[in-house]
Simulated assay, not measured.
Amino acid sequence: MQIISDEKIAEFKNFLEQHDFFYVIGHKDPDGDAIYSCMALAELLKAKNCSYQLLSAGPFKRPEIRSMAIFFSNQMTFLSEPERQKTGLIILDCSEMSRLGEIDGDLSNLDTFIIDHHKTADVTKKCIIDATSPATACLVQQIYEKILGTIPKKTAEYLFFGLSTDTGYFRFLNTDSAEVFRQAARLVESGANPRKTYDEMTGGKPYSTRKLLGIMLDRVERRYNNKLAVTYETMEDTKKWGQEGRDSDSLYSLLLSVDGIEAVLFVRQDTELTCTCGFRSRDKVDVSAIAQKFGGGGHKNAAGLSIDGKCADVLEKICAEFKKVL
């Protein structure tokens, strides 16, 4: 992970000074990093006496973020045209407007600043982007510390949670992560509780998610010399078992622990005409490059996308790209 340059920090401070109001938003179907990065950024704005609104298209399906839903809205505060001219849009944990989802209001043509850590992020706009950072929360922490200094307890808890969720509670980190642990140590010094965070991340899963996980595992096929694990979820599955608290992380973790598996592909039929796809891999396979070919994105070892089509057809299309790699 890189240290954000003073020039980039100055660029963000200048962005704050140029606006009277801010919309703060992360990607649709948010995870812990997206939500808690937004919460921590809101604390920075509050400390700077800046007016803001937290936006999210939701849904807040994951148990670990459900309690945060009350702080977000999918309806923009109405602003007159002169007020919009002095309004800034801060996007966290993604860079594409299409990934923000359905928001009641017009986010277009607002002066925008992006804070993101995805490999496929759009670097053409005003931004702080570091694909070597394991979480957007790490970037928000640096921004807060460089602008305001020591992080208070509540903000430290938000940032530690965001970092923990995106690193699989530090399981995905490599030997280049010393700075990440130094940042995590400062958060603990400020009051973040590692044990409490882990319990909140891993507990509270509905019984239905265990049943659905069993179905996904039962359907797994191995392809290309058993290097790719493939499974899927139908609309009937979703209707029967619901989508509250789904636990895809456990699915990916279990499959990647199988000897010889280098990548995992999961496809869910969301509607009659659309699917959501999730990819995970070990070190060698860059799943973000495959996702990007279908309009998605992410990291080298974790990516996803939404795509038009039927589950069986989508699965075969994407498998064809994995075949070229594996």
Rank of each mutant, 00 (worst) to 15 (best):
K13Q: 14
N14W: 01
F15M: 07
D20R: 08
F21W: 04
F22I: 04
V24R: 00
D31K: 06
S37R: 07
L44C: 12
L54C: 05
L54S: 08
S56F: 04
F60C: 07
K61M: 13
I65N: 06
R66F: 06
M68H: 05
F78R: 10
Q85I: 06
G88F: 05
L92P: 09
C94G: 07
E96W: 05
M97F: 10
G101I: 10
I103L: 12
G105M: 05
G105S: 09
L107H: 00
S108K: 14
N109T: 14
L110D: 02
D111N: 12
F113P: 04
K119V: 06
K119M: 10
A121Q: 01
V123C: 10
K125G: 11
K126W: 00
I128K: 03
T132Y: 12
A135M: 01
A137V: 05
C138Q: 13
Q141R: 08
I143C: 06
T150M: 06
I151S: 09
P152I: 03
K153C: 04
A156E: 01
Y158Q: 00
L159N: 08
L159Q: 02
F161M: 07
L163H: 05
T165Q: 12
T167M: 06
Y169S: 13
F172P: 12
F172V: 10
T175S: 15
D176R: 09
E179C: 08
V180T: 11
A185R: 11
E189Y: 02
G191D: 08
R195G: 09
R210H: 09
R210S: 11
K211G: 05
G214L: 02
L217D: 03
E221S: 15
N225S: 14
N225Q: 12
N226S: 10
A229N: 09
E233L: 13
T234K: 05
M235I: 10
E236Y: 07
D237N: 03
D237C: 02
T238M: 11
K240W: 01
G242A: 07
E244M: 13
D249Q: 05
S250D: 13
L255V: 04
G260A: 08
G260L: 00
I261W: 04
E262R: 02
E262Y: 01
L265C: 05
L265E: 03
F266I: 09
V267R: 00
D270G: 04
R280V: 06
R282S: 12
D286A: 11
A291E: 00
A291V: 10
G295F: 01
G296Y: 03
K300V: 14
A302N: 01
A303P: 03
S306D: 05
D308A: 09
G309V: 15
C311E: 12
D313T: 15
L315Q: 15
E316T: 13
K317N: 15
A320N: 14
A320W: 03
F322S: 07
K324A: 10
K324S: 04
L326A: 15
